[in-house]
Simulated assay, not measured.
Amino acid sequence: MQERSNRFLAQEPVGKLMGMYAIPCIISLLVAALYNIVDQIFIANATYLGSYGNAANTVVFPLTVIALAIAVLIGDGCCAFVSICLGSGDPESAHRSIGNAIVLCVAASVVLTALYLIFQQPLLTVFGGQINEETFRLSREYFFFLPLGICSLLSQISLVAAMAAINNMIRTYGALDPIFGQAEYAQIPMAVVGIVMKFFQIVISIAVGLAAGCIPIVGYNIGAGLKARARRLFTLLLSAEAAVGAMALLIVEVFPRPLIFLFGAAGESVYYIDFAVHSFRIYLCMMILACVNKGAFIYLQALGKALESTLLSTVREVVFGVSFALLLPVFFGLDGVLYSMPVSDVLTFVLAVFLIHSTYKSLRT
């Protein structure tokens, strides 16, 4: 009976199925991401906080991404495995994996909560909280109110290591800048990059939602041996991801000032506004490739290619994300921090092309 009830995954048009599953994922991720965005908008427009508050929010933000990383690791992995099991006619294994995933999520949440509370001060320091006294004070205060991110499902990828590198390079090379090396402007780069990351979070929420919505469809069809349908869905997904990235790119390149004024720019110096516009246009200039890369990562996972997906994601976030965030500022100062994002996305896409090609090839046989 259960097998018959799931057969529509192998029979309905893949475009219809993608919309059916992806739209709820996108909405849930956007709600979570918007929660964080609205939080920062209120902080920025509080006259007693301003850029200090935004900088503090940026310091704490990576800690929420750690929680997301664990949730995605367990949730997406379980979803892919369950779908493959159902497609191959093994509902018993699917049921067991769901129970195991729930238990693992609860255990991980408890452990993460304990670690955050015990190591609060060193964690805030690692993510750049010591840029100045006021930012660190507000970071500690903020930490005890959105600190764990367990209930906030942020659509961020495993960017924690890169965020740590970026935040510390901002602190280091901002101090060498003739403008931001002055005490009254020191927090501006940290605040601005945090805002840019939040916009990126919104876009990636859509990209992740699109791909996550495909997981049960892909898994079921692969389990049922229907590779042609899985191949058509892959094409549709990559096209949709590219379209999302193109729309985001248009917004940040053409309308950066309206975006930054949402975050309290009216009460800030001209240096804040100029650096914000500059940051939006550079840091997010490869949004199309970032979205396509994300779709490819998750689709590979849905196919059961966990090793390839994990390696590609690790190369993007740790190898490229961290190394370029540390290396490029040596030659380009603060601009080097901004260029680390597009350079990482371009190089990751070069690698992803080979995996995309091999995936299409495997789905033809």
Rank of each mutant, 00 (worst) to 15 (best):
L68T: 14
N100K: 06
G321S: 00
E133F: 11
L311R: 05
D76C: 10
Y339C: 04
T310G: 04
T47M: 07
G209V: 00
I166H: 00
L104G: 05
V193I: 15
N168S: 11
A265E: 11
G174W: 06
L154Q: 14
L237M: 14
S323R: 05
L210K: 03
G225L: 15
A191R: 03
Y116P: 07
I37M: 06
S5T: 05
N132V: 05
M190S: 11
I215V: 14
A71W: 11
I27S: 13
G333W: 03
A69V: 12
K361Q: 09
S139E: 13
I170Q: 01
R7H: 15
L104I: 03
T135P: 11
K16P: 03
M247K: 03
L307G: 09
L328N: 02
N132Y: 08
D177A: 02
S28M: 07
A296V: 12
I98P: 02
I282N: 03
T135Q: 10
R231T: 03
L112G: 03
I74D: 02
N45P: 04
I222T: 08
I131K: 00
C151G: 11
V315L: 10
T359S: 12
L112Y: 15
A296I: 10
I298G: 04
L159E: 00
D274S: 14
M163Y: 09
C151D: 13
G75R: 10
F280K: 06
S51D: 14
L347I: 15
A302C: 06
A212T: 12
I298F: 05
L351Y: 02
F200S: 10
E184D: 14
R231G: 08
M341P: 06
G209K: 07
N45K: 12
L86E: 05
V277S: 07
V343W: 05
L210G: 04
P147T: 13
Q11I: 15
Y299T: 04
A224L: 10
F61D: 09
P256V: 11
I195C: 05
L307P: 07
F180D: 06
P258L: 11
L249S: 02
Y220Q: 12
R281H: 10
V38A: 15
L233R: 13
A266N: 13
L284F: 03
A224F: 09
A212Q: 14
L159I: 06
H357G: 14
P256M: 05
E92G: 01
M18Q: 12
R96K: 13
L176W: 07
C285R: 05
A325Q: 01
F200T: 06
Y116I: 01
C285E: 00
F331Q: 01
T235Q: 09
G75N: 09
V244M: 00
V208W: 09
N100V: 01
K294P: 04
I179Y: 14
G89M: 05
I166M: 10
E134D: 15
F255E: 04
E308I: 04
G213Q: 11
L117F: 10
Y339H: 06
Q2N: 11
I102T: 09
M169T: 02
P189D: 05
V126Y: 07
G75C: 10
V72T: 06
A248H: 00
A186R: 13
G223K: 10
A242S: 14
Q182A: 13
A46I: 07
D345S: 08
E253Y: 04
G336R: 04
L236S: 06
L115T: 08
K16C: 11
L30S: 09
